[in-house]
């Protein structure tokens, strides 16, 4: 079950927001085709960390990154890296579902169309259908693809966002607390979906819910105050953590 193929390797990653340092020497390996959960109290840097992987932090003017992140042995913290290509291969799902204010179809077809993944309409139809199927949304929306994506329920919107992310054939999917705005039933559906998706994608998920980390992930990293305290298999972290702080956090003594 535990894979040994390292997909993403970060070394001595330091991130600064202006004067403030948000991440301190993070060294973390993310393995291919499994789910890595990142847990830790609010403000510990887990979101900052995953936003480094697809260079989403570039949007923030004052953010400075140094250190190294290698994806398949290719350095991405480098000005010569084309972030557009990078983000094509690393999809992202956000905390709050953020479908475009367009139709369900257009939400999915946008990515493939700007990257030229479909030669004609029937190709595009195929991509849209497959993406929605992979996101377990096809059955619910197949008859109303031209309706606005924002008209779906919260859970459906989030699956639409997952479908949007996989429409461009990424290798990695980053999820930043994807269930924090959803009810338990919608959350259960997304978790099921994550389980299914890990067969084809490498998934990194930030979560506040430790039970969610246990349910969906094979590996867990614990962040605290911008440092990675401990990373190991999920089983080990939750049954027998190597660090007292991890122990305190997962038993609810702080956080």
């Amino acid at each position: 079950m535990i894979s040994n193929n390292i997909k993403i390797k970060t070394q001595d990653l330091n991130v600064y927001y202006g004067e403030k340092q948000a991440l301190f020497n993070v060294n973390l390996d993310i393995h291919s085709k499994e789910v890595t959960a990142l847990i830790g109290p609010s403000g510990c840097g887990k979101s900052t960390f995953i936003r480094c992987i697809n260079r989403m932090n570039d949007v923030i003017d004052i953010c400075k990154i140094d250190g190294s992140i290698k994806i398949d042995d290719k350095e991405i913290i480098d000005n010569n890296v084309d972030v557009v290509r990078l983000r094509e291969s690393i999809g992202m799902v956000f905390q709050k579902p953020n479908p475009f204010p367009k139709s369900i179809y257009d939400n999915i077809s946008y990515g493939p169309s700007i990257h030229g993944l479909a030669d004609n309409k029937s190709d595009m139809d195929k991509i849209v259908e497959n993406s929605l199927k992979k996101a377990a949304l096809w059955e619910e929306v197949k008859d109303r693809l031209d309706e606005p994506g924002t008209g779906l329920s919260g859970g459906q919107q989030q699956r639409l966002c997952i479908a949007r992310a996989i429409s461009v054939n990424p290798e990695v999917i980053l999820m930043d607390e994807p269930c924090s705005a959803l009810d338990p039933i919608a959350t259960a559906k997304i978790e099921e979906l994550i389980d299914e998706l890990k067969k084809s994608y490498t998934i990194v998920i930030v979560t506040h819910s430790m039970s969610q980390a246990v349910r969906v992930s094979q590996r867990t990293g614990f962040f605290h105050l911008g440092k990675i305290i401990e990373v190991d298999t999920t089983e080990k972290i939750f049954k027998n953590p190597g660090n007292q702080m991890t122990q305190d956090y997962i038993t609810g003594r702080f956080g």
Partner: peptide, 23 residues
């Protein structure tokens, strides 16, 4: 315009100009 729209577009690999002009 909510920043989440810009992030959504950037995250599927739209360039800055595309995210602004399309969304």
């Amino acid at each position: 315009v909510p920043p989440s729209i810009r992030e959504g577009a950037l995250a599927v690999g739209a360039s800055k100009v595309q995210s602004v002009m399309h969304h």
